[in-house]
Amino acid sequence: MQKICVIGGSRYFGKLLVKRLQAAGHRVTVINRGSTPPPAGVEHLVVDRNDEAALMAALDARTFDVVVDQVCYTPVQAAIAARAFAGARRYVMTSTIEVYDPATAALPAVPAGMPVPEEIVDPATWLVAMDLPWHDDVYLEAHYAEGKRQAEAVFARAGRFEFASVRSAHVLGGGAQEFTGRLAHYVGRITKGDEIAVHAKALPTVFIHYQELADLLLWAATADFTGPVNACSDGPLDVHHLAAIIATQAGQEPVYRTVAAGEEASAFSFDRHYVMSNARAKALGFSFSHTTDWLPGAVAETLTAEPSPTARN
């Protein structure tokens, strides 16, 4: 049994992670702003993580074996957390595939079609700029990927605990729980016969089921590796393959509209190869499912779920 703190953990795979940590026998504490209470038996600290003094007071000299940070988006937040949880043995941050987006940073070249390995973005060497307007919501939305990269960098250099980051693929599944609304967007358009905007040559990306991501975070919390790991199911899909799986479940053929160069397409239609390698996680002992094993079930859940608002993955 370990004392594990989850920052966030109020919805989707974070909520599931809390339940699985508790079921595994760990003593779990959840920190959030009070929007959703955790399960019975889980300690709940209501505090804004951005308020360092309030966070320190809420912790009240508590120490944890492991911290799993679900909601760190900026280097400023990372610096506060690194100080507040300096007594932890291990710190795991949920990161994102978007750290590899070449549109948001100058990254080393990867051979065309090659799944991107973790070393392409090395948090130990990434430049950190604390003086950028990270507290501005509009700026943060526009610089989401860079905020994640810099947050990883702050933790990697903190030197106070073992640090690992989990770079998640696009998360799907859970019906109404899937707060991004992206799978629901596709299901809705296909069932209604509405057009899906796609690139002339749509290239593949990677996905992960929300339950598999919760499993991986549980594994990462109790492992001893450090550094980033990519989290994605086997089997990349392009937008046409994704839509075909949805169409089979919905009984309705998709209708496509090809966008001009530079025009915005639907989510998951990419004009660049956007695939991560999950080889490191496998080598460390985690086994992934194949996307086509769980996607039909996720589509079926979405077909019967109420629509949810779109948000950042």
Rank of each mutant, 00 (worst) to 15 (best):
D101P: 05
R49A: 03
Y186I: 07
D60I: 05
K282M: 07
A214W: 01
V198D: 03
A223I: 03
F163Y: 14
K15D: 11
Y144N: 12
L216G: 03
R20F: 02
N50F: 01
S266Q: 10
P75A: 11
V6R: 04
V71E: 10
E146D: 13
V138F: 04
T258K: 11
A247F: 12
A81L: 13
P108G: 10
D215V: 06
G8R: 05
V76G: 02
R257C: 01
L172D: 01
L237D: 08
V66L: 12
P123S: 07
P108Y: 09
F286H: 07
K3V: 06
S266A: 15
I246L: 05
K282Q: 15
L242Q: 00
V198R: 02
G159H: 08
R189E: 10
V116G: 04
Q77P: 00
A88D: 05
A298M: 08
E152M: 00
R62H: 11
V66D: 02
F13K: 00
R83L: 05
R27S: 14
I7M: 10
V138M: 06
G188Q: 08
H241D: 14
F179T: 06
G188R: 09
P38R: 07
L217W: 03
E98A: 12
S277L: 10
D122E: 12
M93F: 08
D224P: 04
P133I: 13
L242Y: 09
V275A: 04
I31N: 04
F225S: 02
E118Q: 07
R157F: 00
P307K: 05
M114T: 15
